[in-house]
């Protein structure tokens, strides 16, 4: 999927979204972080460098994707909620997403 469609949302409506720090939400989530294996990886940094809209910075519900000062995409896999959105939502299929090793990753307390 190249980004064939673009925004359908009224900008005035988008302006009503309250800026929210995802870290405030993630403190409520229990994780067993695998320090030895990153289950998410960018396949090719050059593809991200040429990506015009960088939707992963927004649609990831855990804010796993951020960018550094040079614009390079960084992957904080430790916060991943394992929904799989980045695997299918990246317009260039540039995210290599695998299941964490058994027992690692998110462990919901309530679900």
């Amino acid at each position: 999927m190249r980004e064939k469609k673009r925004t359908t949302l009224n900008p005035a409506l988008a302006a009503t979204l309250p800026p929210t720090n995802v870290d405030d939400l993630l403190v409520s989530v229990k994780y067993y972080v695998d320090e030895e294996y990153a289950h998410i990886r960018i396949k090719d940094d050059k593809v991200c460098a040429d990506c015009p809209h960088r939707p992963c910075l927004d649609f990831c519900p855990a804010g796993v994707f951020t960018q550094d000062r040079t614009g390079k995409i960084l992957v904080g896999y430790q916060a991943c909620l394992e929904c799989g959105s980045c695997r299918i939502g990246c317009p260039y299929q540039n995210v290599d997403w695998n299941l964490p090793r058994g027992g690692y990753g998110v462990a919901y307390k309530f679900g």
């Binding site: 980004e3 469609k5 673009r6 925004t7 359908t8 949302l9 988008a14 009503t16 979204l17 309250p18 800026p19 929210t20 995802v22 939400l25 809209h53 960088r54 939707p55 910075l57 927004d58 649609f59 519900p61 959105s85 299918i88 939502g89 317009p91």
Partner: peptide, 18 residues
Amino acid sequence: LLEQLVINNLKPYEILAR
């Protein structure tokens, strides 16, 4: 729908906060 979040550059947790 995930595509709506992608094409509108939306943060799902901001939609929930709203």
